[in-house]
Amino acid sequence: MTTTTVTPAAGPAAPDAAPTATGPRRRRGRGAALASHGVLTVASLIALFPIAWLVFLSLGPDKDDYLHPGRIWSKMTFENYSFVLSETNFWHWLQSSLVVSLGTTVIGVMVAATTGYAVSRMRFPGYRKLMWVLLLTQMFPIAVLIVPMYQILSELRLIDSYLGLVLVYCSTAVPYCAWLLKGYFDTIPFEIDEAGRVDGLSPFGTFFRLILPLARPGLAVAAFYSFITAFGEVAFASTFLLSDTKYTFAVGLQSFVSEHDAQRNLMAATAVLIAIPVSAFFYLVQRNLVTGLTAGGTKG
């Protein structure tokens, strides 16, 4: 029977999860809050610094400025940005990235939606096997599919084409979206389906007229997640795209170091230009994203 007031103060990483308003508790709370602020501030600085550093370096005009950051202050300029936007393949890369990512997103969500619904509501022979396959495809290392995909795509002459890359991305996006959407459909009450059936809708009608409109947030999460994954994918894009006007950003960014003899200042500027819209978008939807991810996982 220890008293609550003394021991917790010495307790390690176990802050008050349920703060109450008793006297001594509040006094101790102030010290704990201060410590929390300290730890969180340090963690925030660590999280922020590499990105802030990248932004800072992108303002230095010379390619070796990253080794002498002190000199950047005196000659800060936006030249890198204007150069990247006007002289490099930036707009081509933007186009490729958007085409490939949006293509994957649209196909992934459209193909996966009905299946997510089916595995959420119906039990049919082979259900367990299908769920197992959906889970299994999520742990495919890229090393498993990259070689056969390369061979197959080169036979079909789809190497260095957007379509080829979209198809490859769909192999991960489709099962993932199905999994994610199942999690979301599980949260929609079954009574709605039953009401639809009573009113004489077929299962397809129920799905398209009742459930799909209700599932818009879930669809958005699945779409967003496929988009981000396709946008940031490195291995397949580096291998399957050959001409530098078709590069996605993930490949194009690497080409600064090899081809333009290490123009790191331009690379940093491009990196910042890519990061700003993507992270802005991310912040808009992140809350939904997390709920969707864990719902899809835990309720699998």
Binding site: L54, A250, A268, A275, S279, F282
Partner: peptide
């Protein structure tokens, strides 16, 4: 704190390389 997740990995890795 969410920032490292928000920015695409292929961008931040280059920041780390610098």
């Amino acid at each position: 704190l969410v920032l490292p997740w928000a920015v695409p990995t292929f961008v931040t890795v280059f920041g780390w390389r610098f």
